[in-house]
Structure formats: structure tokens, C-alpha cells
Design a protein around this nucleic acid. Structure first.
Length: 484
DNA sequence: CGCATGAAATGGAAGCGAAG
DNA sequence: CTTCGCTTCCATTTCATGCG
């Protein structure tokens, strides 16, 4: 973004005033290069509010297309008209990701608010163009109307708008709690630690915005932290859940990760993200290969997960695995009972079999729904979902996941072959599992270390900025006292 | 429950810059 | 200078939330 500077004429006018003032206060400003001082002062951020605004670079087609593609990923969130706290937070989070992705692609010239504005403009222009076109089409026919036919991109945006409208309408009466929804935008996305503090994100061009409010991302600090932590949790073991420090373990019965493993319907966006999260190995190394194990490990045996991760955290991997395995064995019967309940639930909600099945494979799905009307709009979601898989027991689901990639995963064996007499096989698989756990732990530790380092640097940067600001303030105060 | 406040969405006006 | 396309900002509306 072009930083605003005063023109030569502006400065000349200011200089005249300053020169007059200097003449009348000669004794005070003797020897001061007032022109340099003035130029610096006038172009300082604190004077932004008095400057004329300067337009940014026009948006090119690639930028618009990219923005559309990003918005498309989470259209149900971005285009949702609801204003409740949960959805607003998720929406802000989505915009932050969009902004970061956009910045990665095209540089940091566009601020988050500019992105939002552009998105609004794109929609408004599209609406106008299409309505105008339709009008002409109806009045003068295709030949005349086509003389000023909207671009294919306009039609693309229009299609998106219609699609989004439909999608949101289908969920409008659905009391979905969006606050825990993972975003499709998070696919392969890593938060930048410095995002919050990155000066590039601040809208230095906002002529009416005082310096202290320069953060143009209209997102409150706490949301910032929350969203970061949330994503951090999604990407990093969900330790807060599992270690009991967070609130997620005490989720309501409606929560998608309920204790009995029964899951609610889920939107395509959520599902796709869940897949991503699974494949990114939120709990397990090995990504999608371990999904079968995850399902049983996490949903039917939260306590086992707890124990395992407690051990994992303290570096006792063998004991972690053993704890998990033991707990899983213990809970096997209980799991079967839950599966039976699951069956019953599925029978009661035939329309949502697919979603439930998908959910059962996705321990990361954090969707929380209100109890009333939760099934509304599900028919709209169904066609977008992955091909349906017959409702089955969790163990069958595990087999599915195992056979689909031609591998029998250790975790699967641990959880499904509880009654197997092949203890050697179990031991071997357990060892493999431990090794994987160990590797994963090492990786996570490294990631945490890097993030900690980055956070420290960010904090240092803030401290330095604070100190500088303080010094500047003191200088200003001193110079003000000088005339008196 | 009603009111105050804040945040986000939105329509439209004003301003900017390039092209003719 | 005018026009046009685009960006930016303001005023208004809508909704959520907090408080008495």
C-alpha cells in the first residue's frame, strides 16, 4: 500500500505558516531546520487523520478470483447473516485466515478490512450488473442485453451468491453453534505468530483513524487470542481438551463429540475441514491412515485418550500406549453398547446417516448444536457430502478405513482385536504405535518450541515498540514544556 | 423486560485517478 | 474538462449483549 505523503504544495503551505511562527518565536527555534522537522512531522502517522485519503491499487482479476475462491471455502460462515457471538467470532477467524492467505499470495498491501470491503463491493457490483442485465434481457431481448453482458467472472460471483444464499437459508433456522466449527479455510493453514503484531496489517492509510487504533482488522484482541488458541488446539493435539484444562471435555450432550460417541449432523464445510484435520494428524502421526484408530480411540475412550496424552505429555510413550490400549480394552464392551445406541440413533434419523457416519470418523468435529431444530436444512447438506457409507459399528468403520488404504493400522488392531488370541501381533502393532507416538511427540515438541520462540520475539517487539512510543512521548512533552 | 451500548452489515455519496 | 471505474467513508439498520 502506498503510504500517504503530503504533496509539495501542501508542504509549502504549511511551511509558510511555520515560517511566520518561527519569525515571531525567533529565540526559541533558532538553528532549527524547520523544513526538515516540518516534513517529518507532517508525514508522521499521527498526522494521518488530517491527510487526504489515497486510494490503493485497483484490484486485478487474479486478486478478485483468489478472494472469491477463499470465500467459497467457507461460504456458510462468510455469507451467514446471523450475528450471534459464536458465528461472529468464527467469521472473524475466517476473515483473518483469508487475509493471511491473501497476503501470502499477493503481499500485505491489502488489509483485512480492505478485503472485506472488496468482497462487499464485488457482491454489490455483481448484484447490480446481473439485475441490470436481467432487466435488459426482459425488456429488449438477448441481443440487446448481450451488448453489455456481464463478464464470466461476474456470473461466477453471482452463482456463488445464489449458492451461498441457499446454503445459509437451509441453516438459517438451525440453531447451530458455530463457535466450535473448524473452518475449511484452515486446510493446510498455519497461523503466523506475528500476525497480530504485523505492522503491515495495520491500515496506515486510514486517514481518520487515530494512531492508537491503527489495527485495521476489526477484530478484538480476545477473539484474536481465542481463535489462535482454538486453531492451535485443533492443530496441536487438542491438549487443552484432553488434559482437562479446557472446557471442551465438559461439552454439552449436544456436542458432536459426545461421550457416547453419537454425533450430530454436520455441514460439508465442517466435514471437509475435519478430514483435513484428521489427515494433518491432530491426534496421531500418520495422518489419514490412523483415522480408523482415531475414531475409536477418541470417541469411545476419552478417558483413555486422557491417560494416554497425559503420559505422552510427560514423555512416557510406552505407558501412554499401554494406558490407551488397556483403557480401550476396558471400554470395549461399553463401546459396543454405544454403537448399539448409535444404530438406534441412526434409525431415528435416516436423513442424517451419512453425516453421522462421517462424524464418527472425525473426532475433531467440534460442531455444537442447539437441541431444537437441529435437523433442519440437513437435506440441503446431504448432496454435497461424501458418498454414503452404510451405518455400521465403529469397528466396521475402522476396518473400512484400514482396508481402504490397504493397510491394517496398529491402532485399529489395538482397538478392534481385543478378543484376538494373537498377542504377538498385538505387541508388534503396539510397538509400531509407540514408535509413531514417539515420533509425533518429537515433532510436536519442535513445533511448540518454534512457536514459543516466535511468540517471544513478538513479545519483545511489542516491548520495544512500547519503549519507543514512551520515549517519543517524553520528547514531545519536553518540547512542549520548552516554550513555557 | 426494557434500555443502552457495541459490533457488523449495507446502501449510497464522495473522492481519486486514468482515459478520452 | 468530463466520464467512468474504482476505493473509501459515512449514516443507518439490525442484532447481540450487558445492566438495572
Amino acid at each position: 500500500m502506498v503510504n500517504k505523503q503530503y504533496s509539495a504544495t501542501d508542504l509549502e503551505a504549511f511551511m509558510k505558516i511555520a515560517a511566520n511562527w518561527q519569525n515571531s518565536n525567533h529565540n526559541l527555534l533558532e538553528g532549527v531546520d524547520i523544513k526538515t522537522e516540518m516534513t517529518q512531522y507532517m508525514n508522521s502517522p499521527s498526522m494521518n487523520m488530517y491527510k487526504k485519503r489515497e486510494r490503493t491499487q485497483n484490484w486485478n482479476h487474479q486478486e478478485k478470483k483468489y478472494l472469491l475462491d477463499l470465500c467459497r471455502k467457507d461460504m456458510r460462515i462468510i455469507e451467514n447473516k446471523r450475528l450471534d457471538a459464536g458465528l461472529t467470532a468464527v467469521k472473524n477467524k475466517a476473515w483473518k485466515i483469508i487475509h493471511q492467505k491473501f497476503s501470502n499470495q499477493f503481499g500485505t498491501d491489502r488489509t483485512c478490512n480492505r478485503l472485506k470491503e472488496q468482497w462487499r463491493r464485488m457482491k454489490a457490483c455483481t448484484r447490480n450488473e446481473i439485475l441490470d442485465y436481467n432487466n435488459r434481457l426482459a425488456r429488449f431481448g438477448a441481443e440487446v442485453a448481450d451488448r453489455k453482458k456481464p463478464s464470466p467472472f461476474t456470473f461466477e460471483v453471482w452463482d456463488f451468491m445464489q449458492e451461498a444464499k441457499k446454503a445459509c437459508k437451509s441453516e438459517a433456522l438451525d440453531g447451530i453453534d458455530y463457535s466450535k466449527i473448524p473452518l475449511a479455510l484452515e486446510e493446510g493453514f498455519e497461523y503466523r505468530e506475528d500476525y497480530k503484531f504485523n505492522p503491515e496489517d495495520h491500515d496506515m492509510d486510514d486517514s481518520r483513524t487515530p494512531p492508537q487504533e491503527l489495527c485495521d482488522v476489526d477484530i478484538k484482541e480476545e477473539e484474536n487470542n481465542e481463535t489462535f488458541n482454538e486453531t492451535f488446539n485443533h492443530h496441536h493435539l487438542n491438549q487443552s481438551d484432553i488434559l482437562g484444562s479446557g472446557e471442551r471435555l465438559s461439552v454439552s450432550p449436544n456436542h458432536s463429540i459426545s461421550r457416547n460417541g453419537i454425533h450430530e449432523a454436520e455441514s460439508p464445510a465442517t466435514i471437509s475441514t475435519s478430514n483435513v484435520l484428521d489427515s494433518s494428524g491432530a491426534y496421531m502421526a500418520g495422518g489419514g491412515d490412523m483415522s480408523g484408530f482415531q475414531a475409536n480411540f477418541n470417541m469411545n475412550n476419552i478417558s483413555a485418550t486422557l491417560e494416554a496424552l497425559n503420559a505422552l505429555r510427560s514423555g512416557q510413550f510406552p505407558s501412554a500406549a499401554a494406558a490407551a490400549a488397556a483403557a480401550i480394552h476396558q471400554h470395549q464392551a461399553q463401546a459396543q453398547a454405544q454403537v448399539a445406541m448409535h444404530h438406534q440413533h441412526n434409525n431415528n434419523n435416516n436423513n442424517n446417516n451419512n453425516e453421522d457416519d462421517e462424524d464418527s470418523m472425525k473426532p475433531q468435529s467440534k460442531r455444537q448444536r442447539t437441541s431444537s431444530g437441529s435437523m433442519l436444512g440437513s437435506e440441503d447438506q446431504a448432496p454435497v457430502l461424501a458418498p454414503s457409507v452404510p451405518a455400521s459399528s465403529d469397528s466396521q468403520a475402522l476396518e473400512r478405513s484400514g482396508s481402504s488404504n490397504g493397510l491394517t493400522m496398529p491402532g485399529t488392531a489395538v482397538s478392534t482385536n481385543a478378543n484376538s488370541s494373537s498377542s504377538n501381533n498385538n505387541n508388534f502393532e503396539l510397538r509400531m504405535f509407540m514408535e509413531m507416538q514417539s515420533k509425533e511427540h518429537m515433532m510436536r515438541m519442535k513445533i511448540l518450541e518454534v512457536q514459543l520462540q516466535a511468540a517471544k520475539h513478538s513479545r519483545d517487539l511489542v516491548e520495544i515498540n512500547k519503549t519507543l512510543a514512551l520515549q517519543k512521548l517524553q520528547l514531545e512533552l519536553a518540547s512542549k514544556r520548552l516554550p513555557s
